[in-house]
Amino acid sequence: MSDLAEAARAANHIRSLTPRQRERRARILDAAYALLVRHGYDAMSTKMIASEAGVAERTLFNIYKTKDALIATAARERSEGFIEEAWSKAADHGIGFFLSLCETLSRRTLEAPEVARALAPVLVQQTDLVALHEVYRRYVGRALEELVDRDALDPAVIDVLNGLVTMRMVSAVTLWAGQAIADDALEAHMRLGVCEVLSPHVRGPLHDWSIEEARRCVDALARTAL
């Protein structure tokens, strides 16, 4: 079975785990985060992860099969947790979700910068394995459908826009990890990315808002660059 299939299998079985199994998985993922920060992806081994987590190495292979699948799962679940938080805190599940998404992703990234920087290359190098597009589809797709219901968006572009929003969020974090974006500019870059994706496709008041919001973001970024 491929690493992609193994990562999907692990994700699909989360809800069926017992509390003890969930606790063990949490220890494994926490150990993987810690070792990524200390040693980097290439130097980290499944043996090291197992020792750090206090489990047998065969347990890791039983759950994830490979190191790539384990780290991809860690990256996906961390991102999904942040997106779920953004959804739950959004003022509404239309444009309010997109604003909440930018705020939550930037804040959570900056709360644990070492982990975020260690995982950023995984999001780019293991795109298919991490499968963030499917995670975003469940939330961004629903927010876009809300805009369709409000007659502000054509339903034919939902899938394309979902992919573009995913790319903009990942790109912002990756650029930040490479120190091309400053900490205090991260959220503005994300908001600007959302506006750039939506403005050519939304209509009515939302189009006007997206243009004005893009201007505000550009002004804010100009101030942070001074």
Rank of each mutant, 00 (worst) to 15 (best):
H189W: 05
T109W: 07
A185H: 09
C195G: 04
H93S: 08
L147N: 03
E111H: 14
T59Y: 03
E111I: 09
T73M: 05
I63E: 05
R24Q: 11
R191G: 01
A8L: 05
T46Q: 13
I181R: 02
D219Q: 09
I14G: 14
A90G: 01
M169W: 00
E77G: 10
T109I: 09
N12T: 11
R138E: 15
R15L: 08
E80G: 02
L101S: 00
H207G: 12
V130H: 05
S106K: 00
C217L: 02
K89G: 05
L70E: 04
A177C: 03
A172N: 04
R38C: 06
M167A: 15
L119V: 10
S199C: 06
D183H: 00
D68R: 11
L70V: 07
V173M: 15
R24M: 12
E145L: 15
A120C: 09
Q125C: 11
L161F: 06
W176D: 12
A131H: 08
E85V: 06
E80Y: 01
S51R: 14
T46Y: 05
A50I: 07
A69E: 05
E187T: 02
R78G: 04
E77W: 12
L153Q: 14
A180F: 12
R203T: 15
V140G: 09
M44Q: 07
A69T: 11
L164K: 15
R191A: 03
L153M: 13
I95P: 00
S199M: 13
R108A: 08
A222L: 14
R216A: 11
E6A: 15
I28G: 07
G204L: 01
L147H: 02
K89M: 05
A26V: 12
E52D: 03
L17V: 08
A222T: 14
L198I: 11
L101T: 00
A69P: 06
R22T: 13
A120T: 14
L186M: 08
T59W: 03
I71Q: 04
V140I: 10
V197K: 00
E212M: 13
D3K: 03
A86C: 07
E52G: 04
A91D: 08
H13C: 12
S171N: 14
V194D: 00
S51E: 10
P113H: 11
A131K: 08
P205H: 13
E212P: 06
P205A: 15
A172K: 02
A75L: 07
D30R: 15
E145F: 11
L110G: 10
I83V: 12
W209T: 02
D159Y: 14
H133Y: 09
V170E: 01
L17S: 11
I83A: 07
L29S: 07
T174F: 13
V202W: 02
I28T: 02
L226M: 08
L119P: 08
L99Q: 06
T224N: 06
F97I: 01
A91C: 05
D92S: 09
M167V: 15
I71L: 05
H207C: 08
T104K: 07
I63T: 05
L132G: 00
R9M: 04
V124C: 07
V202S: 00
S199W: 01
E85F: 04
K47Q: 07
D159H: 15
L206W: 03
I211P: 09
C217G: 01
L99Y: 09
F61Q: 05
A225W: 06
S210N: 12
R223E: 09
